[in-house]
Nucleic acid binder design. Structure first.
Lengths: 188, 188
DNA sequence: TTTTCCATGTAACTCGTTACATGATTTC
DNA sequence: GAAATCATGTAACGAGTTACATGGAAAA
């Protein structure tokens, strides 16, 4: 429901058509949601079918008419509900890209270091992009602050891992015990 | 490809059947991947079809025979490739649940505070769960360390936001200017 | 004795993406 | 004159989930 929360929230500030909404999201919110064009259009149509928004076709020249969406009071109610729900809940992000770390010990230390330094470079690059972005007004800035905070935290952690690996202080299970884990135990 | 990386990595330590693999992931890795049973089975079959693993049916009693998977050398090669790729890359996690924060200014300050405190409670609960978990050997511990680091960082950030909101130091766009943003501009 | 666990799977479905189609219009 | 932008959409596909089915074994 985050996607509809987002769309409703944007429509709250004024009527917009699909292209506009998608474009705005892609330009400014790509780092927290990613919503493709067909998905956006379909979502908007569904919201219209549910009465959360109204549609008005505005034709201008010979291009496909803009379908301009406007929030209804029902839509506003839904927005309020979704917003409260969203704010009260915490969902830890599942990176998924973490999985590899569980297996670093499969590589020679030197190579693992080299690869993680590549990772670090990618991270600092993203961080730099956010740091150079202009400050915005409104609570949208909160999102950017959060992302900055998150990226810095990731960098700090990665640096810590790198330092520990360089110092050889990372206890890995290595010596290839091949324990034939047919039993019901844990810890790989 | 993270899912296959994970499965291959686990199979690297020894042969296992589907139920075992799924069970292990669900118990120990739920916080970073979530992989349902039918998905796991299907993935394993596909990996077998591609020659990354071999299957051997082991029947025992009158239950459905275990399908025991074993890594092939080709599978090992794929594992190595996926692992290097994974370690070198950094993908910022998209929480999605952040979206709501862009709209906090739609609620009265007091209520926003109340809701974010609920969020904080949920977060500390998850944190507590991880802090009380036993220490593991091997690089699996890295994942847990990372998660702890991440959750603490989120908590710190949330506390900062709460503090700023309480002090009224959070500049929100509030006063309902209703700017009718029909033009091509940004920043809601 | 009833529930939970073991161990597999299928079928239907939802969600979202990719690739494609259209055609005027503005920009280089 | 070519390329990007505006503005909509459809169709096919893929990945993953849910709900269901089976049936013995162990545990409560």
């Amino acid at each position: 429901m985050e996607r509809e929360l987002l769309l409703l929230g944007l429509l709250r500030q004024g009527e917009m058509h699909g292209y506009q909404l998608h474009d705005f999201i892609e330009r400014n919110l790509a780092f927290c949601t990613d919503l493709k064009k067909p998905t956006a259009y379909a979502l908007l149509e569904r919201m219209a079918a549910r009465g959360w928004v109204t549609v008005q076709e505005v034709r201008e020249g010979h291009r496909p008419p803009r379908r301009v969406y406007r929030l209804t009071s029902e839509g506003e109610a839904v927005f309020q509900r979704l917003l409260r729900d969203n704010l009260a809940r915490f969902e830890a992000a599942k990176t998924g890209s973490d999985v590899g770390l569980a297996f670093v010990d499969a590589l020679p230390r030197a190579e693992a270091l080299r690869l993680l330094e590549q990772r670090r470079a990618a991270l600092t690059e993203q961080l730099a992009a956010f740091q150079s972005a202009p400050t915005h007004a409104g609570s949208y800035q909160l999102l950017i602050d959060h992302q900055l905070h998150y990226l810095r935290s990731e960098l700090a952690w990665l640096d810590d891992v790198l330092a520990r690996m360089r110092a050889g202080r990372l206890r890995l299970v290595s010596p290839r015990s091949t324990p034939k884990p047919k039993s019901k135990e844990a810890s790989p």
